[in-house]
Every structure is written in structure tokens, then in C-alpha cells.
Design a protein around this nucleic acid. Structure first.
Lengths: 101, 101
DNA sequence: TAATTAAATCGTCAATTGGCGATAAACAAA
DNA sequence: TTTGTTTATCGCCAATTGACGATTTAATTA
């Protein structure tokens, strides 16, 4: 995928927006986030019950959302409670808003 | 990538949002769209001059943006003038807006 | 008709993605 | 310490992505 020696350096906002967009670039992740918005928070297991996907697949999607900063996990042993990361959510919202004018 | 026999059926809005997000999930495509917003329109060749990428690579990105409906090409032989597709742009804007509340 | 110009498409390649089952890790409770 | 519960990680695989150079296509002009 990368044949160029050095990757192109884009503006920080451009990179950030692309990163958020990438996290949203799968319907399952959109649906997970919508679910989190409704429930405010939930456990991985809840999502495994909601979606017809393997637990490991759900876990991967959560990892990507976490890496993008859109969600955060709180330890509630032996479970993990996932919530929207409000700060980054706001950042993403603003970036998309500005982008679309 | 697809081991499931039948893909999950999500709501139309969820699918649409994911599709737009996927189109935006690369910094080059974000930058192309920003460029189009500024210039209002431009030719493939202009972009080839602006970005340190091969003509074929630019063309592929344009194709993805066109498939997502975010841009449209107008024949100005032997060139093609690309512009934002205002209708779909508005749709995307609204979808992201609603999603982020 | 032939030549020119601009853009799209083709073929190839390495990297990434999305799916799964199986296994490992973390922690509470017995 | 062992057991049970929940989630993360690993290894694998097929499909997709992003990059390129080379070629083809489309349309104007000579």
C-alpha cells in the first residue's frame, strides 16, 4: 500500500479528520457508537448479544474505536464498561462540521 | 474479509454514513475535497501537480470520491472538470451532523 | 486519417482489513 | 489456590486498499 519512501505530510486537521473518518468507515462501528449514544455506556458482552458477530470481532472494532479516541473503557471487573470519549467526540464533531462548512 | 454468508443488514442511514466515512478515510481524499471546496472545481491534472502522487493514483482517489457521490465530473474535452456534488454533500453533512448530535 | 492530450483502466505488489476460532490474560469469588 | 467469567490477543485466511508504471480510451485538432 506504501510504495513511497516518505509519506505525504498533510495538515494536522486533515490527518485527524481522516483518522476519525476511518474509524467510522464500517457500519458495525457506526452501529456500536449509536448504541453507546443511546445506552450512554455498555459492556463488550452486551454488544456481542446485539450483533451477529464473534466476540473477537466485536473486540477488534472496539479496539479501533478506542485507538481513534472515540470511546474509552472503564474497568468494572470482570467487565469493561465502554463509553463515548466526550472530549474527542466533540473534536471529531467540530472537525466534520468545519469540513462540511 | 467476509466469512459470513449473509452480510449484516444495517439501517440505511448507518450504511450511508459508513460509506461517506469510508470515502473520507484517507488524508489525500480529504485534501482533494478541501481543494475542490476552495477552487470550487478543478481538473485531474491540477491535482496531479498539487500532490506528489502518480496520475493513476489520483485518478483512483477521484473514482472513489465519485462512487461515494461526493464529487462529479463534467466533460470539458480533453479534460474533465471535477466539482463537489452539492446534493450528496448536503446529505453527508446532515448525516454526520445528526450522528454527532 | 493521424497525432496529440488528458484521464481512466489494467496488472502487479505489499500492507491492511475484517472475519473467525482458539487461546491468553485479568480479576473476583469460592 | 483453583475456578469461573469476561475481554483481549493471536494466528490464519480471503478480500480490499493504495501505490505504481504501462496501456487504453476519449475527444480535439492537425
Amino acid at each position: 500500500m506504501k510504495r513511497n519512501l516518505e509519506p505525504i505530510a498533510y495538515k494536522a486537521d486533515t490527518e485527524a479528520l481522516a483518522k476519525f473518518a476511518k474509524a467510522l468507515a464500517h457500519p458495525t462501528r457506526i452501529a456500536i457508537l449509536k448504541h453507546l449514544e443511546n445506552q450512554s455506556c455498555c459492556f463488550t458482552g452486551d454488544l456481542v448479544d446485539v450483533f451477529p458477530l464473534a466476540q473477537s470481532t466485536i473486540s477488534q472494532h472496539l479496539k479501533e474505536l478506542k485507538n481513534a479516541g472515540l470511546i474509552q473503557g472503564e474497568l468494572k471487573p470482570p467487565k469493561i464498561k465502554y463509553c463515548i470519549n466526550q472530549d474527542n467526540w466533540k473534536t471529531a464533531k467540530t472537525l466534520f462540521q468545519q469540513f462540511f462548512d
